[in-house]
Design a protein around this nucleic acid. Structure first.
Lengths: 347, 347
DNA sequence: TCAGTATACTGAAACGTTACAGATTGCCAA
DNA sequence: TTGGCAATCTGTAACGTTTCAGTATACTGA
């Protein structure tokens, strides 16, 4: 009789991974009781609970994820969906670390779900939802009318977007205030006497493209400056393209004396283009740029910089998804971070 | 009787995720047969096999990962273990994309397992192995005597290291030939008349620190040049520290006229330090640097560059782990990639 | 004709977990 | 004394998969 219970498990020597059955055997309790004791269920006696938890800690019991997942459907996985070609480099590492920081003391794992240029961005999201591979999803490159957000909302899977949507639907997001960034950049350039400004936009189609353009245009209305159209360029073009087009622009008769750039990599290309045209940064033209890691001031100290913290984005997005999973109202999980001041080189 | 089989599953309207049971019901076969038919087991009739696979494809059957994992122990997960503070930024995104590319058409998912400065690097690896969270592991920041590699080898879990070890143990790795890089850099600098060279080393303790130093020193022996010690600096220090120390060094009487730098971010700092000391790149001093993304030539066109492809590292490491999981000999899964030539700015 | 065997299929059990529906005990009110 | 009830604990089933040990059928050779 007794041997029945033990015939597999009490091979303690073999050092197999402990399961609820192991704990049940060690404590002399039933598997069910052990399970409930570990999750502080109300109908378990205080002493039993403590005893079970003590033993569990001692032998290093860890719930088997496959068991939980199979039984409950809970995956304990957050998926970060990334475009393998167009994502900003520092974005990837910073956001991963930000998310990691938040989920570090939770049972969650982070899985990265990539998709490539050729794919519909909806594909990876569909895959995740259809296969039930994650409890929560984080997406970037958010669009005003974003099919992915709509889809996940329909399917009822918790998610958070990096960037806002504009569909009249409520969901968690984290965003940088790109309207304020662009407006502040324009004001700063006007303040140092620049009058003809060009904007290097975010990728057309993404929500923050609109925000940025609006901030730029609105602020131009407030100050004594005008726009030099530079519509052929956006930050997800190649360095070479941006550089060439900038050089072309700067060789025209009517050329900008100020740039507002939405990303550090593009800024490198713009400066190169400016210099290709024989002009000098800080003298002939000023550039205000966003950056997410401290490198632009090493590049050219004349650059004017606004910092965007992607690691913060990671933590906020992770918090938002976990919050939604935990039952919080999606509408209460929306954050927009204001840009800091435009900073010039500090000695 | 019939209703027993159907009472849950045939609610086709509800559009629940199909399982083997669903397929069994649809084809009129047993669950076992369906399972075997899907994996081309030999004892299944050719027509049955085709029929099952057709139906499975039509209704979009996907095996439930939790079911498989619970039953077989196979997780279909590869884990990439990363240091959240010291990893090179572009390394993170490139290697993730490289790995993704390889596992894209396999059932594998990529999970990122981070650890922080304060933790023992062995911790995350122990966690993965003890909880059986992955079928294969990729680690970076490899040391000559690496406890993580030793541990995984003992436990028999497939892994690949970015960088080699030197413990007399055989395991898959991918490495960049840093010996050749450093040696070639020295030869190049000597070739353009530089005589007093300083090395900005990789992090002390990592295997490629030794490789780099050896390449540097050995090549110095071949050419008419000597080393200016710069031991207080390595590439995982902060930009500010490297910059300050470089400036100090460059203000000494006996200062280097050439640098070899193991990472792009450090190179930015070194150039800043050089310029802080009032010296000019290309005139007073030359710098050969590794980089993993095309930005250094935008930064200063006088820089001399050797490219290291982290995306390739990602694909090679993924291939190596998958190979080992697939039963290949670990010794056959080792690659070292030669550096390309030192390249100067191309007009 | 019949045993032997290859072919094609099947049910039951198990992986580790949780939910459901009890079961046992002791205590209290009537 | 008894019925009721709260407090604790328990066995069974189920999640979806694969493996084990079959079973049924048809074919083979003598």
């Amino acid at each position: 009789m007794d041997r029945d219970q033990t015939d597999k498990d009490d091979d303690a020597s073999a050092h197999e991974r402990p399961t609820l059955k192991t704990l049940a055997f060690m404590t002399g309790l039933g598997v069910t009781t052990v399970s409930r004791a570990l999750k502080d269920a109300p109908e378990i006696g205080a002493e039993t609970r403590r005893r079970v938890q003590l033993v569990a800690r001692q032998i290093g019991y860890r719930p088997n994820r496959a068991g939980v997942r199979l039984r409950t459907g809970k995956t304990n996985v957050i998926s970060l969906v990334l475009n393998t070609e167009r994502e900003i480099m520092s974005f990837v590492s910073d956001i991963i670390y930000g998310v990691s920081e938040v989920i570090a003391d939770t049972p969650y794992h982070l899985i990265v779900t990539p998709y490539s240029r050729s794919q519909d961005p909806l594909d990876p999201v569909k895959y995740l939802v259809e296969t039930g591979s994650a409890d929560g999803v984080i997406i970037s490159r958010t669009q005003p009318n974003d099919p992915r957000a709509r889809y996940m909302l329909e399917r009822g899977i918790p998610f958070a977007t990096h960037g806002r949507t504009d569909m009249g639907l409520v969901h968690p997001y984290h965003d940088f205030d790109n309207y304020a960034f662009a407006a502040e950049a324009v004001r700063h350039l006007a303040g140092i006497g620049r009058r003809r400004l060009a904007l290097v936009t975010p990728p057309v189609g993404l929500t923050y493209y609109g925000h940025t353009v609006n901030g730029f245009v609105d602020a131009l209305g407030e100050v004594d400056a005008s726009e030099v159209p530079f519509n052929t360029v956006s930050i997800d073009q190649s360095i070479d393209q941006i550089r060439t087009r900038t050089a072309q622009l700067m060789r025209r008769e009517v050329r900008p004396d100020g740039f507002v750039s939405s990303a550090a990599a593009a800024t490198l290309a713009i400066v190169a283009g400016i210099e290709d045209a024989g002009l000098k940064l800080g003298r002939d033209v000023d550039v205000v740029s966003k950056q997410s890691s401290e490198l632009l001031h090493l590049f050219r100290r004349e650059l004017l910089i606004v910092n965007e913290d992607f690691r913060l984005a990671g933590t906020e997005l992770a918090r938002a998804v976990l919050g939604w999973i935990g039952g919080a109202a999606p509408g209460s999980l929306q954050t927009v971070v204001k840009p800091g001041d435009v900073v010039a080189y500090r000695g």
